[in-house]
């Protein structure tokens, strides 16, 4: 899949609590005319995860790193370090790879609490981050705003995209219920299947 100038690498948590935010993120990227690239897009137990991450980073001019869930939330729980690691690999790709196309890479860092990243990663204190506050509607705004700031033209308004996302979700719900899916199965659908549904509708 050689689509470097349209690909957006996504580095985010893959837990159930984050799933709604991930779906809104995927829809917004596709609605704005880009192709999300995410480790969940294919499942192969034999594939080395870090090799896959490296391939996705190298295949994408854009990257979105959501570091909103790296903080431990309970005593004894560890920080989640996969996401900062993947951000580091991406920055390394841009800084050290040598090929000109990688020097043009654009990176968005998302957080849920303003200035939270700077507290955890002081080396990133130079970075402008966008804050989605853990809200799906805000996630759509952050990503759409970032594309606009990169100079992408003719984007619809954040509320328009959000409304279309709600229309899309209702249409999927109607169709899949007719096909015999129950509401929980519809909400927890595998990500590759969800991305196919978006392709059918957008």
């Amino acid at each position: 899949m050689d689509n470097f100038d349209k690909n957006v690498f996504i580095n985010c948590p893959f837990d159930d609590a984050y799933l709604p935010l991930l779906k809104a993120l995927l829809f917004t990227i596709k609605y704005c005319g880009f192709t999300p690239r995410i480790a969940l897009e294919r499942f192969d137990s034999g594939e080395v995860r870090l090799v896959k991450i490296k391939q996705l980073i190298e295949a994408s001019i854009y990257s979105i790193h959501d570091l909103s869930r790296i903080k431990a939330t309970a005593i004894g729980e560890y920080f989640r370090l996969n996401m900062p690691l993947e951000l580091g690999i991406d920055i390394g790709c841009r800084e050290y790879h040598g090929l000109e196309k990688y020097q043009n890479k654009k990176i968005l860092i998302l957080e849920s609490e303003r200035f939270g990243i700077q507290k955890a990663l002081s080396d990133m204190s130079f970075a402008d981050c966008k804050c989605h506050l853990g809200e799906d509607v805000q996630m759509v705004s952050c990503v759409r705003e970032w594309f606009a700031e990169l100079g992408i033209k003719q984007l619809r308004s954040p509320s328009y995209i959000w409304d279309k996302y709600n229309d899309f979700i209702s249409e999927v719900y109607r169709k899949k219920k007719q096909e015999g899916f129950n509401p929980s199965e519809i909400e927890n659908i595998p990500i590759p299947e969800f991305m196919d549904w978006i392709d059918d509708k957008v």
């Binding site: 709604p20 935010l21 779906k23 809104a24 809200e135 799906d136 509607v137 959000w162 996302y165 709600n166 979700i169 209702s170 719900y173 109607r174 219920k177 509401p183 519809i186 909400e187």
Partner: peptide, 13 residues
């Protein structure tokens, strides 16, 4: 009438 949750999923149909 489709009532959505704040994450856009369907709460009531």
């Amino acid at each position: 009438v489709v009532v959505h949750k704040k994450d856009a999923s369907v709460e009531k149909w």
